[in-house]
Amino acid sequence: MQRYIIRRLIQGGIILFVLSVVVFLLLRIAPGGDPAAFRCGFTCTDDKIAAIRKEMGLDNPYFPVSVDLTDPPFVSFNGESQYWRWVRELFNGSLGRDWNGAPVADELQNRLPVTVELLIITLLVTIAVGVPFGIVSAVYRNSPADYGARFGAILGLAVPNFWVATLVILIPIQYWDYAPPLTKTIAFFDSPWDNLRQFVPPAIVLAAVSAAGVMRLTRSSMLEVMRQDYIRTARSKGLRERIVVIRHALKNSMIPVVTIIGLQVAALLGGAVIVESVFNLQGVGIYFLGALVRKDYQVVQTLTVYIGAVVVLLNLGVDILYAWLDPRIRYS
């Protein structure tokens, strides 16, 4: 197992290196103009834009090494390069400065806890709603409970979360003069109650889609497991149905569900962009969106690699979890 984990981590490192080169290049070759000109705006002069390019490091070549097949010895080494500067900043933790001139590390330090808390609560709601309803739906197949749960799941998948989010803040203020705190992010340890008032509504909105997916997958997985021979054997031994479902069926049906929950973290980050905006949570999602719009290389490439690293680690975690859920799985 240890060797397997080490091998996967090395593979992950290679993936992240390739990802870093790809995102670095794509940002620069994609249409959309010069971020320095963007930042410089409508009052730009040539001198001003040159100063901004220098500040952002955009006056350096892309890579530490340049290849020119028409000019022997074909390879030349550059001093400072944009890629090397970025990688150096990634490793030393400074992360450079964003389009506004603010340190990216400071921004992430402020924003990461917001998004992480939102995602944790969302995952908790997703599991708390999706798994039990999936089980009930499978166990009481074709009953009103099953139909109700499936209807709810389809509704959750069908309704766009920006619309639900808007309703969630507009209806309470209209009818009950109530609104969650919207002006600034409240840390849990500063005021637990206000923090939950702020985070639970967006988490429920975000979880609507993911819980629906988990519910449907749990249901289908449970139905498949319930048809297995060992379930029939368990029943024939006279075990109570509750024991059959929870001890014998549930754990085995969880493997695809765990996979999907792991992968949903990355998908939830996408949904977080909109929900953070509607609930005015100053998290990573809203930061990423703003950076994309204005071609903020430093932020987009840094966050892409970080998100890539999270996905790599989550996949590894999910694989390890498989072995715990199904002892037949062995890694070597």
């Binding site: 803040i169 609104a179 509607v278």
Partner: peptide, 19 residues
């Protein structure tokens, strides 16, 4: 000064007296 990018939360914050 508080930053609220989206119009709906700005409006709701005003109606609720948060801004």
């Amino acid at each position: 000064a508080v930053r609220i990018s989206d119009r709906q939360p700005r409006r709701v914050s005003f109606l609720d007296g948060q801004i």
